[in-house]
Design a protein around this nucleic acid. Structure first.
Lengths: 99, 99
DNA sequence: ATAATATATAGAAAGATATCAATTTGAGGT
DNA sequence: ACCTCAAATTGATATCTTTCTATATATTAT
Protein backbone atom coordinates (compact mmCIF):
# COMPACT_ATOMS: atom_id res chain seq x y z
CA UNK A 1 0.00 0.00 0.00
CA UNK A 2 2.00 2.89 -1.32
CA UNK A 3 0.20 5.93 0.07
CA UNK A 4 2.98 8.16 -1.16
CA UNK A 5 2.53 7.18 -4.79
CA UNK A 6 -1.21 7.57 -4.37
CA UNK A 7 -0.85 11.09 -2.96
CA UNK A 8 1.31 12.11 -5.89
CA UNK A 9 -1.25 10.67 -8.32
CA UNK A 10 -4.00 12.71 -6.61
CA UNK A 11 -2.02 15.93 -7.09
CA UNK A 12 -1.59 15.31 -10.81
CA UNK A 13 -5.22 14.30 -11.36
CA UNK A 14 -5.67 18.06 -11.68
CA UNK A 15 -3.86 18.10 -15.01
CA UNK A 16 -4.93 14.90 -16.75
CA UNK A 17 -8.38 15.94 -17.94
CA UNK A 18 -9.00 18.28 -20.83
CA UNK A 19 -11.80 20.21 -19.12
CA UNK A 20 -9.74 20.74 -16.00
CA UNK A 21 -6.90 22.17 -18.10
CA UNK A 22 -9.40 24.61 -19.59
CA UNK A 23 -10.59 25.59 -16.11
CA UNK A 24 -7.00 26.15 -14.98
CA UNK A 25 -6.42 28.30 -18.05
CA UNK A 26 -9.38 30.45 -17.03
CA UNK A 27 -8.04 30.70 -13.47
CA UNK A 28 -4.63 31.86 -14.73
CA UNK A 29 -6.09 35.34 -15.01
CA UNK A 30 -6.84 35.34 -11.29
CA UNK A 31 -9.63 34.32 -8.93
CA UNK A 32 -12.95 33.54 -10.60
CA UNK A 33 -16.46 32.78 -9.40
CA UNK A 34 -17.89 29.34 -10.20
CA UNK A 35 -20.72 31.04 -12.08
CA UNK A 36 -18.17 32.74 -14.36
CA UNK A 37 -16.39 29.45 -15.03
CA UNK A 38 -19.75 27.87 -15.79
CA UNK A 39 -20.46 30.52 -18.42
CA UNK A 40 -17.15 29.96 -20.18
CA UNK A 41 -17.12 26.18 -20.05
CA UNK A 42 -19.47 24.05 -22.08
CA UNK A 43 -20.61 21.79 -19.25
CA UNK A 44 -23.48 21.64 -16.75
CA UNK A 45 -23.26 23.03 -13.22
CA UNK A 46 -22.93 19.64 -11.46
CA UNK A 47 -20.13 18.64 -13.84
CA UNK A 48 -18.26 21.84 -13.07
CA UNK A 49 -18.77 21.18 -9.35
CA UNK A 50 -17.30 17.70 -9.80
CA UNK A 51 -14.19 19.04 -11.53
CA UNK A 52 -13.73 21.79 -8.95
CA UNK A 53 -13.76 19.14 -6.23
CA UNK A 54 -10.98 17.19 -7.95
CA UNK A 55 -8.99 20.40 -8.48
CA UNK A 56 -9.35 21.36 -4.81
CA UNK A 57 -8.54 17.84 -3.58
CA UNK A 58 -5.34 18.00 -5.64
CA UNK A 59 -4.29 21.15 -3.79
CA UNK A 60 -3.77 22.96 -7.11
CA UNK A 61 -6.89 25.10 -6.65
CA UNK A 62 -8.25 26.86 -3.59
CA UNK A 63 -11.92 27.59 -3.02
CA UNK A 64 -13.19 30.53 -1.01
CA UNK A 65 -16.82 30.87 -0.05
CA UNK A 66 -18.32 34.33 -0.01
CA UNK A 67 -22.02 34.39 0.65
CA UNK A 68 -23.57 32.04 -1.83
CA UNK A 69 -20.69 32.30 -4.26
CA UNK A 70 -17.62 30.14 -4.53
CA UNK A 71 -14.46 31.82 -5.71
CA UNK A 72 -11.67 29.70 -7.07
CA UNK A 73 -8.02 30.48 -7.62
CA UNK A 74 -4.77 28.71 -8.36
CA UNK A 75 -2.70 27.81 -5.30
CA UNK A 76 0.95 28.80 -5.62
CA UNK A 77 1.75 26.28 -2.87
CA UNK A 78 -0.04 23.54 -4.76
CA UNK A 79 1.85 24.29 -7.96
CA UNK A 80 5.08 24.30 -6.02
CA UNK A 81 4.45 20.81 -4.64
CA UNK A 82 3.87 19.55 -8.16
CA UNK A 83 7.07 21.30 -9.27
CA UNK A 84 9.02 19.75 -6.40
CA UNK A 85 7.96 16.32 -7.55
CA UNK A 86 9.10 16.99 -11.13
CA UNK A 87 12.43 18.28 -9.85
CA UNK A 88 12.88 15.12 -7.77
CA UNK A 89 12.47 13.05 -10.95
CA UNK A 90 15.20 15.02 -12.69
CA UNK A 91 17.67 14.88 -9.85
CA UNK A 92 17.54 11.11 -10.05
CA UNK A 93 18.61 10.52 -6.45
CA UNK A 94 17.83 6.80 -6.34
CA UNK A 95 14.44 5.51 -5.36
CA UNK A 96 13.35 7.01 -2.05
CA UNK A 97 10.82 4.45 -0.99
CA UNK A 98 9.15 6.52 1.70
CA UNK A 99 6.31 4.63 3.38
CA UNK B 1 -11.85 21.23 -30.20
CA UNK B 2 -9.11 22.32 -27.86
CA UNK B 3 -6.15 20.25 -29.02
CA UNK B 4 -3.86 22.27 -26.80
CA UNK B 5 -5.68 21.33 -23.62
CA UNK B 6 -5.77 17.73 -24.79
CA UNK B 7 -2.02 17.66 -25.39
CA UNK B 8 -1.35 18.99 -21.93
CA UNK B 9 -3.64 16.35 -20.45
CA UNK B 10 -1.73 13.61 -22.32
CA UNK B 11 1.56 14.80 -20.82
CA UNK B 12 0.21 14.66 -17.28
CA UNK B 13 -1.45 11.26 -17.73
CA UNK B 14 2.04 10.02 -16.84
CA UNK B 15 1.60 11.15 -13.25
CA UNK B 16 -2.03 10.43 -12.42
CA UNK B 17 -1.82 6.68 -11.82
CA UNK B 18 -0.29 5.10 -8.74
CA UNK B 19 1.54 2.34 -10.63
CA UNK B 20 3.04 4.80 -13.08
CA UNK B 21 4.37 6.88 -10.18
CA UNK B 22 6.02 3.73 -8.85
CA UNK B 23 7.55 3.02 -12.25
CA UNK B 24 8.89 6.58 -12.45
CA UNK B 25 10.36 6.18 -8.98
CA UNK B 26 12.22 3.10 -10.19
CA UNK B 27 13.46 4.98 -13.25
CA UNK B 28 14.81 7.81 -11.08
CA UNK B 29 17.89 5.68 -10.48
CA UNK B 30 18.59 5.63 -14.21
CA UNK B 31 17.72 3.58 -17.27
CA UNK B 32 16.11 0.22 -16.53
CA UNK B 33 15.13 -2.79 -18.61
CA UNK B 34 11.42 -3.65 -18.80
CA UNK B 35 12.21 -7.04 -17.29
CA UNK B 36 13.71 -5.32 -14.22
CA UNK B 37 10.64 -3.09 -13.82
CA UNK B 38 8.45 -6.17 -14.11
CA UNK B 39 10.32 -7.84 -11.24
CA UNK B 40 9.88 -4.88 -8.95
CA UNK B 41 6.27 -4.07 -9.76
CA UNK B 42 3.42 -6.30 -8.73
CA UNK B 43 1.72 -6.45 -12.11
CA UNK B 44 1.70 -8.74 -15.15
CA UNK B 45 3.81 -8.16 -18.24
CA UNK B 46 0.95 -6.87 -20.46
CA UNK B 47 -0.07 -4.41 -17.75
CA UNK B 48 3.48 -3.08 -17.53
CA UNK B 49 3.58 -2.78 -21.32
CA UNK B 50 0.34 -0.77 -21.22
CA UNK B 51 1.72 1.66 -18.63
CA UNK B 52 5.02 2.03 -20.51
CA UNK B 53 3.07 3.01 -23.62
CA UNK B 54 1.24 5.75 -21.74
CA UNK B 55 4.50 6.95 -20.18
CA UNK B 56 6.20 7.09 -23.60
CA UNK B 57 3.21 8.78 -25.26
CA UNK B 58 3.37 11.45 -22.57
CA UNK B 59 6.98 12.20 -23.50
CA UNK B 60 8.06 11.74 -19.88
CA UNK B 61 9.76 8.41 -20.59
CA UNK B 62 11.93 7.32 -23.50
CA UNK B 63 12.22 3.73 -24.69
CA UNK B 64 15.31 2.33 -26.34
CA UNK B 65 15.32 -1.09 -27.98
CA UNK B 66 18.45 -3.20 -27.66
CA UNK B 67 18.12 -6.67 -29.10
CA UNK B 68 15.05 -8.14 -27.51
CA UNK B 69 15.16 -5.86 -24.52
CA UNK B 70 13.47 -2.51 -24.01
CA UNK B 71 15.32 -0.01 -21.88
CA UNK B 72 13.37 2.86 -20.38
CA UNK B 73 14.56 6.11 -18.90
CA UNK B 74 13.18 9.45 -17.82
CA UNK B 75 13.29 12.18 -20.47
CA UNK B 76 14.73 15.44 -19.19
CA UNK B 77 13.03 17.22 -22.10
CA UNK B 78 9.68 15.66 -21.21
CA UNK B 79 9.99 16.75 -17.58
CA UNK B 80 10.92 20.23 -18.74
CA UNK B 81 7.77 20.55 -20.84
CA UNK B 82 5.70 19.59 -17.82
CA UNK B 83 7.61 22.13 -15.74
CA UNK B 84 7.04 24.84 -18.34
CA UNK B 85 3.31 24.27 -18.09
CA UNK B 86 3.35 24.57 -14.30
CA UNK B 87 5.38 27.78 -14.56
CA UNK B 88 2.85 29.21 -17.02
CA UNK B 89 0.11 28.62 -14.43
CA UNK B 90 2.03 30.54 -11.81
CA UNK B 91 2.90 33.48 -14.02
CA UNK B 92 -0.78 34.07 -14.54
CA UNK B 93 -0.36 35.88 -17.82
CA UNK B 94 -4.04 35.95 -18.76
CA UNK B 95 -5.67 33.14 -20.65
CA UNK B 96 -3.78 32.40 -23.86
CA UNK B 97 -6.54 30.74 -25.80
CA UNK B 98 -4.37 29.14 -28.46
CA UNK B 99 -6.43 27.14 -30.95
C1' DA C 1 -41.72 32.48 6.55
C1' DT C 2 -41.18 32.42 1.57
C1' DA C 3 -38.93 32.95 -2.65
C1' DA C 4 -34.93 33.19 -5.45
C1' DT C 5 -30.34 32.01 -6.55
C1' DA C 6 -25.67 29.53 -6.19
C1' DT C 7 -23.58 25.47 -5.30
C1' DA C 8 -23.39 20.59 -3.77
C1' DT C 9 -24.94 15.87 -3.67
C1' DA C 10 -27.31 11.55 -5.27
C1' DG C 11 -28.17 8.39 -8.67
C1' DA C 12 -27.88 6.62 -13.31
C1' DA C 13 -25.81 5.96 -17.86
C1' DA C 14 -21.96 6.18 -21.05
C1' DG C 15 -17.23 6.10 -21.75
C1' DA C 16 -12.50 5.40 -20.52
C1' DT C 17 -8.91 2.86 -18.05
C1' DA C 18 -6.61 -0.89 -15.67
C1' DT C 19 -6.00 -5.45 -15.41
C1' DC C 20 -5.43 -10.21 -16.65
C1' DA C 21 -4.95 -14.66 -19.65
C1' DA C 22 -3.93 -15.98 -24.16
C1' DT C 23 -1.66 -15.11 -28.38
C1' DT C 24 1.47 -12.80 -31.62
C1' DT C 25 5.59 -10.56 -32.97
C1' DG C 26 10.44 -9.97 -33.07
C1' DA C 27 15.32 -10.97 -32.08
C1' DG C 28 18.87 -14.08 -31.13
C1' DG C 29 20.86 -18.56 -30.41
C1' DT C 30 21.33 -23.80 -31.69
C1' DA D 1 14.46 -23.95 -39.96
C1' DC D 2 13.47 -24.31 -35.04
C1' DC D 3 13.49 -22.98 -30.28
C1' DT D 4 13.62 -19.64 -26.66
C1' DC D 5 12.91 -15.53 -24.47
C1' DA D 6 11.29 -10.39 -24.18
C1' DA D 7 7.87 -7.42 -25.28
C1' DA D 8 3.55 -6.06 -27.71
C1' DT D 9 -1.14 -6.92 -28.99
C1' DT D 10 -5.84 -8.84 -28.55
C1' DG D 11 -9.94 -9.58 -26.23
C1' DA D 12 -12.55 -9.87 -21.99
C1' DT D 13 -13.87 -8.05 -17.63
C1' DA D 14 -13.93 -5.10 -13.63
C1' DT D 15 -13.39 -0.69 -11.96
C1' DC D 16 -13.13 4.26 -12.19
C1' DT D 17 -14.48 8.74 -14.48
C1' DT D 18 -17.22 11.80 -16.73
C1' DT D 19 -21.44 13.44 -17.58
C1' DC D 20 -26.20 14.22 -17.17
C1' DT D 21 -31.01 15.01 -14.66
C1' DA D 22 -33.18 15.58 -10.47
C1' DT D 23 -32.94 16.95 -5.81
C1' DA D 24 -30.99 18.95 -1.59
C1' DT D 25 -28.58 22.53 0.94
C1' DA D 26 -27.31 27.10 1.95
C1' DT D 27 -27.52 32.06 1.66
C1' DT D 28 -29.61 36.25 0.84
C1' DA D 29 -33.63 39.26 -0.19
C1' DT D 30 -38.64 40.24 0.35
Amino acid sequence: MDTNARKTAVIFKAFCDENRIKILRLLKGGEKCACMLLEEMNITQPTLSHHMKILCDSGIVIGRKEGKWMHYSISADGIEKAQDYLISLKNGKEENNNE
